[in-house]
Design a protein around this nucleic acid. Sequence first.
DNA 1: TTGAAAGCGCTAACAA
DNA 2: TTGTTAGCGCTTTCAA
Lengths: 345, 345
Amino acid sequence: MKQLGTVSSNVTIFEVAAQAGVSYGTVSRVLNNDPHVRLETRERVNKVIQELGYVVNRQARSLAGGKTHIIGILVPDLGTGYIAEVIQGIDTELQLAGYDLMLYTTHRTPILEANYVANLAQGVVDGLILVLPRNPEDYIDTLKGRRFPFVLVDHQGSGDQCPAVNAANWQGAYNATEYLIQLGHKRIGFITGWMDLGSSVDRLEGYKSALWAHHIPFSEELVRESNFQQLDGYNRAMELLNLSEPPSAIFAANDVMAFGAMDAIREQGKRIPEEVSLIGFDDIPQSSIIHPALTTVRQPLRNMGSIAVQLLFDVLKNPTAPFKRIELPTGLVVRDSCQPPQSNP
Amino acid sequence: MKQLGTVSSNVTIFEVAAQAGVSYGTVSRVLNNDPHVRLETRERVNKVIQELGYVVNRQARSLAGGKTHIIGILVPDLGTGYIAEVIQGIDTELQLAGYDLMLYTTHRTPILEANYVANLAQGVVDGLILVLPRNPEDYIDTLKGRRFPFVLVDHQGSGDQCPAVNAANWQGAYNATEYLIQLGHKRIGFITGWMDLGSSVDRLEGYKSALWAHHIPFSEELVRESNFQQLDGYNRAMELLNLSEPPSAIFAANDVMAFGAMDAIREQGKRIPEEVSLIGFDDIPQSSIIHPALTTVRQPLRNMGSIAVQLLFDVLKNPTAPFKRIELPTGLVVRDSCQPPQSNP
DNA sequence: TTGAAAGCGCTAACAA
DNA sequence: TTGTTAGCGCTTTCAA
């Protein structure tokens, strides 16, 4: 057989076995931390592995029934700091465990999403992390049917019984809104995320609940449906500011839209926070860097990533254990973009 | 053997062969587009493949000497729009070709970088794309020694003979600087990127050359060494603005630092572009969205990604062909952040 | 043009 | 505790 494209250095389990004077089955045991190996033998084998620079061939391992030690992650895109942070968390955790990461970007195409999931479950990866899935209903059943390990990140399924990690979206939005109210704001604009996402719905509900709890009438015109994108945040904020009675504060369902709103507010010649207060959601890194630094609701994004990995490992280890759904707390990060409203001039 | 974690649906080449009434070798030939298959047979086999929903097992294929149809990409991080755009280009191209993407983030750790490369070349991926490599010298020789296919993105090697795709950094910086000069600016601040990156050096050189060509004396104090990060852009811009004779225009070696500079300028109570002109480099998506929209040097980031993939495929197909190095043109994107300097009040 | 068969490197069952 | 061995699903020779 000729050596084509893929050149693997040819140190195999056999060479290691020969060098160490054991059978290759034993080497395999050492590799897989099988307890049935004498300490002395284990050490000898490990030494040879070191010396020879042996690295397991993952394809062979997986073919023989083992794990690939690769996990797949499915994300809508990489454009926003949000996803990047989550991946960072996943990535770090995976690195610690010696796993590799296969990245699938759906570019927000639901068909792609379903296709990937179907093919992936076919063998390359040991498990799947689905970040911000849009139409999980399409394939969750497939996944479950095949008993394929997966974890959802940031999706409030409609009572789906599956492992997931989320942030306390409702509570975060509630707190942010309440903070503005306590500052003295009465007209608070809200720019939503994609409303087909559970987290968006929850944030809107948190906003409404806080108004309600403080006896502030809910006004339809102050809520603008958007899509988590900066440009749209800009446009929705413009609409809000052009209202006959504009809000004194704006709450955007994510930081990126808050950046858009920031531009809009300045564009209108108004100052933040003196004339308009602004609050975001996510706490992506950029939010602490811009000026004025953005007050926002912190989602523990990296944490969510690393916990997703841990959940997935749990499932991998014990596929029959009951599903865990974890909700991480959100927290208000007060910076410089909010203050009490100006008394009317 | 028990079925563990990885559940592969059990349609194999054998079932297909049986259903189609051919040997499994023939199915393999169909799969690999071997011309030695009668058209009729091929069609019959393909039909069965469709019906059974057969998908090749990549591990088995690769183990048997074929390709994995996975390519690896090594990036420093995902934080900036820059990398995300390049990945987007890579990803799209790969999707078209039916390849999967393995993502390795080095988090700017050179050791990790070298480790990855060593292990990767060991088998999981057919080839490697190295984006913005920091210390390629450490492992390029390894890669070459193993004849492992790889492509460099955005690295001006010191005469390295290896496949690479780059942007015309020098030219872009030259044009941007010249643009400012033609607008009437004489004192132009420059905020560099990491100076251990070839592209950063080239941009600085482009800046210097343009000054030189227009007989503007180069002033050391107007150049600030930075690291491509937003916060650092902010700080360096602050230094520039606090000079006894501050620049009337600032050129940042990437857009993200320009955003930082934008904050700094506003923080100083100055307006863009009326009082200070600002120009970036990269043209990441955010640059067209912010206000004022950033004038910048466009790097065809997605293109760079997709061309990197094409180069890699070339190497895969024809490993012995001479290396290609491609330099993509950059272009000035004039938006709203520059104008002629104010005549001194 | 096709079939048969030898592995690829490894895991895990079965013996010893 | 260790050795032996049967595959995992596929590609690719070698024959036919």
